[in-house]
Structure formats: C-alpha cells, structure tokens
C-alpha cells in the first residue's frame, strides 16, 4: 500500500432502521485506494456494494439510515460532513457513474445543459466556455457529432450513448476518484467493452482512481488492479487481481470463479453454482455469514474471522493455508 492513500475507508457501517430492528447493509468495511488505482468490488446482489458506494458519495438520504465509521478523502473526513462542504467535493474531486443510464439523467434538460450545470457548479467559467467544455467531453467519450448530441434530450439517445453522456458528466471536472456502480450492466456487450476502455483511458490520461462495482468477473479481469470481494456487507477477500484470479482463498471467491464457464477443456455438464441464497441481512448467521452455504464450514466458523494474509492478499476465512492448498489442488476452485 502506498504511503498516502487517496481514499481511506475504515469501519464503514451502513444500517437501516426497519420494522425488524436495525439492519446492517454494510458491516464495518475498511479499505484504501491509492491515486490511479482501479479497484474492482465484486459480490452478489445485496452484498452491500452499492450501499458502500452511495455512502462514500454521501448519497444515502433515507431518514432511516445510520452511518458510522470513517471515510477520509485526501485526509478529509466525509462522514458527517455538512452538505455545503460535501458539495464542494462531490462532482469535482469525486464523481459517480450510475448503474442505469436510462434513468440517471434528468429527462427535461439537454445532455449538454446537465454537463454545463456540473462544470459551473465547481468552476468560475462563462456559460459559453462551459458549453464548449461539455462538447469536448462528449466528444472525448467517443460520441460522434458531439455538438449535436449536447443539444439533445436523454430520451433521444440510446442506452450506450446515455451512459457515455453520464460518464462525460462524471469526468467533467477531472475527478481524482471515479466511482462506478455497475456501469456496464445495463448495456450490451460491445458497448460494455467500449465503456471499460474509456474508464481505463481515464486512469491513464488523468491519473484518476476508480472504484468499479460489478458482479461481472470478466470486467474485473479486464481493467482492475486490485479486487475486493464482498459478501453480506463485509469484505471477505482482498488482494491484487493476480492474487485473486490465480489463488483465491475464500470459499465464496472459489464459488464465484467456479461459476464462470470455462473457455477451454471439457464442457461441464452443469455450470457450478454456489448453493443456497445470500442470507437475509435482518437475520445474519453468527460468525462467518457464508457458513451456511460453505462446503468447508466447521466449528471455528462460528466466530467471525478477521481478514488475514500476507502481501496484501487477505481473506476472512479460518481455513489454514495448507488446507487451502490441498483443496485447490483437488480442483475445488478453478481459476
């Protein structure tokens, strides 16, 4: 880990007051991101990925939400920061790309106007110059005829175009941190590849760090530097992309990798799946939350294991390295 992380999250917890009592969607996660790093955050639906991102951006507005822990961006604490101070950071230093481009843009304003709005919120710049910048940005994300597109309304653009417009908007102030919540999920495969390439280029050109949430491991393999696997509101494994893809340690990660269809070798009769469903957040099992679905669970799993490991590759699992190597050798996890 570099000495000065761009973003440092420690013990972040997001819980909601519900009829069943306090339900924790994110349960004390900690991580740090260096400038220019692309972090993939993977996990099933309901594992708390999106809530983590929204918490980072201060976008959890539900009156029933309770946030605790710490999010430090360039040393500044974001949790509990006032709206004004927060608005000076988000949109300029931190920007977010949302999952569904069809609903992410205000339908009654042109794409250009929405980008201009963001630029003018953070910079003293004339409307005309902001407009020119917006057209440049739209062009930079690979949209042909950018000046024309800037004058169009969201409903007049295709899904891929809209997502590019959302990205152009997110990039408008050259953010140091880009947070992308499943930016390619709603798009078809060819467009997905273009969007990923765009995000990768952003890092190369502007040195922005990226948090990329996805449940598509192929996307992670494509562009991430580091990977964190979330399960039931906790990070269960973290490490470099190489570590995770070559030697995953947590049985949940094994399950994730095993569910990818193999490109080579014999075609499996049935694609492997993790048995069971993710636990309800309001009724989490004690100890390791994956225990009920884990083939290797034993008595020690009744206490929540901490993230342990060497060289930045850590997993929250009680299996000993020797036992893990044994299981991997037996083909328990393909990679």
């Amino acid at each position: 880990m570099p000495a000065e992380p761009l973003l440092e999250v420690s013990g972040l917890t997001v819980s909601f007051r519900t009829e069943d009592g306090l339900v924790e969607a994110v349960r004390g996660i900690s991580f740090a991101i260096a400038p220019g790093e692309i972090m993939g955050l993977v996990g099933e639906s309901g594992s708390g990925k999106s809530q983590t991102l929204l918490a980072l951006m201060g976008l959890i507005t539900s009156p029933n939400a309770v946030l605790s822990g710490s999010v430090r961006f360039r040393g500044q604490e974001l949790v509990g920061l006032g709206r004004r101070a927060l608005d000076r950071i988000r949109g300029r230093d931190m920007a977010m790309i949302f999952q569904d481009p069809m609903t992410a843009l205000t339908p009654v304003h042109t794409v250009g106007a929405q980008i201009v709005e963001q630029i003018r919120a953070h910079e003293r710049i004339s409307p005309r110059a902001a407009r020119a910048r917006a057209v440049e940005l739209i062009s930079a994300v690979g949209i042909p005829a950018p000046a024309d597109v800037a004058g169009r309304y969201p409903h007049q653009l295709s899904g891929g175009m809209r997502q590019r417009a959302v990205i152009a908007m997110a990039l408008s102030c050259n953010p140091a941190l880009l947070i992308a919540d499943e930016p390619t999920t709603a798009l078809d495969v060819t467009v997905q590849a273009q969007i990923l390439e765009l995000i990768g280029r952003l890092r190369d050109e502007f040195g922005s760090a990226v948090i990329l949430v996805t449940h598509d491991l192929g996307v992670v393999a494509e562009i991430a530097d580091t990977v964190r696997v979330m399960y039931a509101g906790k990070v269960v494994e973290e490490g470099s992309k190489r570590d995770l893809f070559t030697a995953p340690q947590h049985p949940y990660a094994w399950g994730l990798f095993a569910s990818i269809p193999p490109l080579e070798g014999a075609r499996p009769a049935r694609l492997s799946a993790i048995p069971g469903t993710p636990p309800r957040l309001s009724a989490l099992p004690a100890g390791c939350a994956f225990r009920p679905r884990c083939a290797h669970a034993h008595a020690a799993c009744a206490a929540m294991p901490a993230l342990t490991g060497e060289g930045g590759h850590r997993a929250a699992c009680v299996l000993s390295p020797a036992r893990r190597a044994e299981l991997l050798a037996a083909g328990e996890a393909r990679s």
Binding site: L54, M57, L59, T61, R83, R84, L86, D87, R88, I89, R90, G91, R92, A95, M96, F98, D100, T103, A104, L105, T106, P107, H109, E117, Q118, A121, H122, V166, M169
Partner: peptide
C-alpha cells in the same frame, strides 16, 4: 428518482436539485 441522485452527486446544492430537477 434516479436522476435526482445523479443531480446530488454533481455537487450542485440541494436547492438547485429541488428546483431545477
């Protein structure tokens, strides 16, 4: 709506989010 979340993420201030979006 989702676009309100986008607008908030732009850092434009709640009054503007409320009135303009």
């Amino acid at each position: 709506e989702d676009f309100i979340r986008t607008a908030r993420a732009k850092g434009i201030g709640e009054t503007r989010v409320l009135l303009h979006h």
